[in-house]
Design a protein around this nucleic acid. Structure first.
Ligand SMILES: [Mn+2]
Ligand SMILES: [Mn+2]
Ligand SMILES: [Zn+2]
Ligand SMILES: [Zn+2]
Lengths: 145, 145
DNA sequence: AATTTGACTTAGAATTATTCTAATTCATCT
DNA sequence: AGATGAATTAGAATAATTCTAAGTCAAATT
């Protein structure tokens, strides 16, 4: 999918507008790249994919667009073990699985309320506004997809 | 506490030996620094604290010692949001709380079996050998300790 | 319609935590 | 004592990200 659908474009414009920023071709393209292939790409990978759709874009702009998308709440950063930051447009609460063998990162859906309930382990003085859950291991073979 | 107790020294020697490495004054001192102040220091902070006990130690050696301790299983790396790696000698399963205001990282004890039970959310193809749980937020005021 | 404004984009330099290199030092073994 | 190899060290190299400063562009104002 080379361009953003009407619904996604609407989502983008609304979110950007809400945070006082503009929708631009670069931002649309980067957002489209993230929506199209949800494999938690790094900035480098986003750059390569975006460049194939918009050859004139620069690395700096990719970083700027990603930051804009994050600040508008449309995209989350996923940091794993000091590896380069990855980007995830899945806004539902979810966990991540990091495969030691391939380095790939997968979304793990969790039952509603699971992430919130985790904060029950926190002593009262800790006020958590976000919860991050990461599993690490390997995929049962025959499941490299 | 400027030096390592007999029990900790025993633990260190055993673990290092088990992974084919030697106990050295530098490694003992770095380990002691981590045991004495369990605030998840960065390599820089470990370096400063170690240098005050052993002024001739170098940054390279601190990194080397930390890596040795991690590889021998006595210390865990704690990575949060692309900040410099922190080091934690707490071997019990536990979660972390990261304060947005101070940047400090706290250990959060969890009931036995809690971390393991989290893997129940994983579809069968995912074989997890580690689980990481990080909360982010702020401390209720009056609890800056 | 021309001008102004400020947001956005861009290339390249700077930053910085960490790793690497190559030269010593040091403990242990023969 | 001499040999061996692990450990330590200073400094260079690496690499993801951020910063800087100059250019571009679209919308708003005149
Ligand atoms: Mn990996
Ligand atoms: Mn922080
Ligand atoms: Zn995700
Ligand atoms: Zn800890």
């Amino acid at each position: 999918m080379k361009r953003l659908g009407q619904e996604d474009k609407e989502t983008l414009t609304t979110a950007l507008d809400h945070s006082g920023q503009r929708a631009t071709p670069q931002r649309e393209t980067v957002f489209g790249v993230l929506l199209d292939q949800r494999d938690h790409p790094t900035a480098d990978e986003v750059y390569a994919r975006t460049k194939s759709r918009m050859p004139t874009i620069s690395m700096a702009t990719v970083y700027n667009c990603l930051e804009t998308l994050v600040s508008s709440g449309l995209v989350k950063q996923v940091n794993i073990e000091r590896e380069p930051t990855r980007y995830c447009p899945n806004l539902a609460p979810h966990a991540h699985f990091h495969c030691r063998e391939t380095g790939r990162v997968y979304d793990v859906p969790v039952p509603a309320g699971t992430m919130e309930k985790l904060t029950d382990v926190l002593p009262g003085k800790y006020q958590a506004d976000s919860v991050e859950l990461v599993f690490r291991g390997h995929l049962a073979k025959g499941n490299s997809k």
